[in-house]
Amino acid sequence: MQRSGGKNRWLWLAVLFLFVFVAASAFILMGRLSSYLLDDSGAIALIPVQEFSAPDALASNSIPLQQAEQSSLVTKEPAAENHTNTPAAPPAAPGFEASDDSKVWSTDTQVDIFRVSYENGEGTITVHSNDGDRLIAPGTENTYAFKLKNTGNVSLDYTVEVDAFVTPDGTPLPVTGRLSRYDGKWLAGAPDTFADIPALDAAADTGTLSAGRYTYYTLDWLWPFENGNDALDTMLGNAAVDDDLLFTIVIRTVATASLDPEAPGGIIPPVDTGDDFSAALWLALAICSLFLMAVLLVFHIREKRRA
């Protein structure tokens, strides 16, 4: 009996913890979602303020003409004051997010600029790592896109910089690259030109993002298959047998709140007709925990009756 009672207690506790976690998560999510609520500070009041004119007032009251000249029924005008209801501005809540198609960046996030395997135009694998390392070789290339988004409610000033380097230092790697912004601004290279590694290493950009807006960049790199120096390519490939010749690209982003919290900039994201908050999941968890609590309660009552 005691054993059963003790077990039920632990179960009760576990259920309560589960319910608490659900509630805590809901609170956290609601806290984050609040920044996306529409700003209604410029809304027009539904009931307009009305002013009464003297002739209208006189018409509604029977006063002798003689007296009407000396007195007038005039509804006092409302004080000249602002009657529009301006809600207090929400507190500044800056937020910034750098991401690509598959993940949100934190610090030194591993992203997919290079690959383990490459195919040619016919779908034939032409380069493939024998140990899972990401590779570069003559004829390999790739494109990588990343997005910077203002997730807060004030404008942000951002900086994006590229570090591109070869290890060991001084290795004459004939890889080229270019970096462009969504609006056609080229930070390295050009539409028909790839830049060398030092030029890619110097690529940088700054900008401003309004609340809720974003910008994106596209990084391309290429090791030309025919670059007129087969001897160099072969030398590098042979050297790679015994030593790792590495090409590294790091993309750094920094964002700070703008001096002007309403500074313009960035792309307006498409309007979501529905958010992606998975209410069903959390509701299901809440229902499950409540159901479990009810079952345990019934079980507990039965045990008491038997006792």
Binding site: S106, G237, D244, L246
Partner: peptide, 14 residues
């Protein structure tokens, strides 16, 4: 701030 990085090695010939 946030940063994304990746590296690759030259494919072996030999």
């Amino acid at each position: 701030d946030g940063s994304g990085e990746d590296y690759a090695r030259v494919a072996k010939w030999g």
